[in-house]
Design a binder for these strands. Sequence first.
DNA 1: ATCCAGGAGTGAC
DNA 2: GTCACTCCTGGA
Length: 268
Amino acid sequence: MITRELDYFNLQQICNSGQCFRMYRIADDRYSITALDKYVEAIQNGRQVTFDCTEREFTEFWEDYFDLTVDYGKYINAVSPRDKYLSAAAQMGSGIRILRQDLWEMIVSFLISQQNNIVRIRRCIDNICHRYGERKIASGGTEYYSFPTAENLSMAEEQELRGCNLGYRAKYIVSTAKSIASGEVRLDDISRMSYHDARRELLKLYGVGEKVADCICLFALHHMEAFPVDTHIRQALEKHYTKGFPKRRYKGMEGIMQQYIFYYELMA
DNA sequence: ATCCAGGAGTGAC
DNA sequence: GTCACTCCTGGA
């Protein structure tokens, strides 16, 4: 058990921010988080957050995963007080973190996300983890499944993947898994690229468009300048920023601002 | 029933 | 480059 006093951190807000699909509320203030082949449960009591894992697991994985070494006060304070809309949004979502998630897992997750809703995205990912992932037992005895590797998914048949309720997205996943498993596209190279270069490489993947590429850049590669625009964000921008969102002002922190807006609209 | 939800590919022009 | 159309699925 690891307990930390954390500012600008809220499990409920992170869970509903739409960036991770394997995080679930399992009790009033208790959440389960599965990432790659790891599992943890966390409980929040105000500033006090307890992670049900060893010191080693925390410092070697979860601390980085939740981006706990970064002070999010700098983002909150960067919001212009004159911008009432963004101020309200940032206050509402002040506990959101941009997680540092696995690149491959995010590629698949956001391929599935297109023209889809969060409940179904969660179910689809749960399905492919059950079918192609590895069964595991957490230290507390909870059974869970790891996220399948690109190699495993590259060997799947499209029809078989459709059994996971992926619909037409199944062909995107098979094709993308093959180009990665074959070495044609190298994820560790993309990890080292700038936002601009990484985005361009990701767009080469079958089924990855601009919105999905930006989500991957932000939620896996932690390129904070990525600003994914989906239909909801577009509507919010049209309504509150007729002259366009002031990206200049928020240079290098566009992504977290997008999350504040996204969460605010979701809660409204 | 028809529509559409946190898009992207394709072909036509 | 900008449409219009299509691609699964399930919930409203």
